[in-house]
Computed example of a mutant assay.
Amino acid sequence: MAAVSAGVTSPFDLRSASLTLLALLLKTTDLKLLAAELAQRLAETPELFNQEPVLVDLTAVHADPTPLDMAALVALLRRHRMLPVAARGGSPAQMEAASAAGLGDSPDAVPLTPRAEAVREVVREVVREVQVPGATLLVDKPLRSGQQVYARGGDLVVLAQVNCGAEVIADGNVHVYAPLRGKVVAGARGDTSARIFTTCLEPELISIAGTYRTAENPLPADVLGKPAQVRLDGEKLVIEPIKI
C-alpha cells in the first residue's frame, strides 16, 4: 500500500455534517396502494422532490406482519425523484430488508414531519451567520440559488434578499426583511406555532411544520409581493397581509 509522502496533503478529510432529511412516514406495507397515492398527489408536480434525500420511517408499520419489499419501495420512491438514504423504526426483519436494499440505519436522524417537501440535507454554503441571544440565527447577506441556511433550535432572521433556488429553514419562526423568493420552512421539527414573516412574499415554497404550499398554487393578490405573515391553523396554511 502506497504511503503519503511527507509534506503531501492528505487526499481526504472527515468532517461532521448537520443533516435534515425529508421523512416518509410509511402507514402501509401495501406498495400498490402507496404507488397509487403517490401518483395522485404528484401528478401535477412530478419534479417536486428533485432528488431530495429521504428517510423511510417504519414506525407506524413496525408491527405489521406483512413482508415489506424494500427494494421495490426504494425503486418506487426513486421513480418519483426521491433519494432514499436511510430507514428507521422498523422491526428487525424490516430493518434487515432495508439494509439489503442499500439503506442506512438512522435511529438518530432528525426528520421533518411527513408532509414536508422543502428541505434537502443542510450543507451550509453560507455567507455570514451571526448567533444572537435567544437561539436566533441572523443572516445579513443575500442568499443566492443553491444556498441553504438552517436555524437549529430557534428562529432565523434574514436581512437581505432570498433569491429563487435558495432555502431558509428554522425550527422556530422565519423573518425575512427583504424579498423572499426561494423556499422557506418554519417549524421544521414540528412546531405548529411557528410563523413566517416577510416584507415581500414571492416564494417558490412555504412550509410550516410540514404543511406546505408551492408557487404552482398562486398566492392571493393582497399578499403576493407584499408584506405578509404565514401561520398554521390546524392543517391549513393561513397567509395574511401585514399592514406597515
Rank of each mutant, 00 (worst) to 15 (best):
P107V: 00
G7Q: 09
S91H: 06
A86E: 05
V174G: 01
A98Q: 08
G225L: 11
V110N: 02
A3N: 10
V56M: 08
E125W: 15
Q161H: 07
A72F: 05
G172S: 02
Q147T: 10
D108S: 13
L232R: 02
L205C: 10
R88V: 04
R78H: 08
D30E: 12
L48P: 12
A186P: 01
A221Q: 15
S106T: 02
L201E: 08
T113C: 02
L143A: 08
G89H: 00
A186K: 00
R128L: 09
V126K: 14
I239E: 04
N173A: 07
L180H: 04
T136F: 02
V238W: 00
K32H: 11
V132S: 02
A23Y: 03
A118H: 07
P53Y: 06
V132M: 03
A39Y: 02
L224H: 14
L77C: 13
T20D: 03
P241H: 08
S207N: 10
A228D: 10
D222A: 14
V4C: 06
L42P: 08
C164W: 08
A160V: 05
A101V: 11
K183D: 08
R231L: 03
N217K: 15
I242P: 04
E216S: 15
I196L: 04
V158N: 00
S193F: 03
